[in-house]
């Protein structure tokens, strides 16, 4: 229980320990701890920002999808219309073509009829003459009656 120099020695040791702790122990440890705290705080705020970004991106994606659907609907509509138009147009074309063909056919028929009539006329004249020859039992002068026969044929 004696008080002696130990007292002073202990005080000196204490002072040196405190000095060392203040200078070499405390600062690096607290610095690292603060750095970690900051890192964690940064990480958390980054996560917050990321989730916000995600939300925005989802919204944007939904909007774009909606837009794309609308555009697609418009395109389909246009395509339908266009298809209807094409069908309509081709029907028209077909009808016109058909009419044209009919017209051509009619013209051909008309032509053939005229030809056939011409042929018949020529034939009729010959037949009439042959018939008259038979009737008259004589030869008819073809030249003398051709004028009359041509008139007859023209009347046919």
């Amino acid at each position: 229980m004696n008080i002696n120099l130990t007292l002073i020695g202990q005080s000196i040791a204490f002072a040196i320990f405190v000095w060392f702790c203040v200078k070499y122990v405390w600062p690096p440890i607290t610095a690292a701890m603060e750095a970690r705290q900051k890192k964690i705080a940064d990480g958390l705020s980054a996560a917050d920002r990321a989730s916000l970004d995600l939300e925005l991106a989802q919204e944007k994606a939904a909007k774009q999808l909606q837009q794309a659907k609308e555009e697609a609907a418009v395109l389909i509509d246009q395509a339908n219309k266009r298809a209807a138009q094409i069908v309509e147009a081709s029907k028209d074309d077909a009808r016109k073509e058909g009419e044209k063909l009919i017209e051509q056919a009619r013209a051909e028929i008309q032509q053939e009829r005229v030809q056939a009539r011409e042929a018949l006329r020529a034939e009729v004249a010959t037949l009439a003459i042959a018939g008259a020859e038979k009737i008259l039992e004589t030869s008819v002068d073809a030249k003398a009656h051709s004028e009359m026969l041509d008139k007859l044929a023209a009347q046919l």
Partner: peptide, 22 residues
């Protein structure tokens, strides 16, 4: 011995654990 003495065990062990801590 009075005041002019030192407790070698006290000093030794306190400095030893102090150095261990630091």
């Amino acid at each position: 011995m009075g005041f002019m003495a030192i407790h070698v065990d006290t000093m030794g062990w306190s400095i030893a654990v102090g150095l261990f801590f630091l």
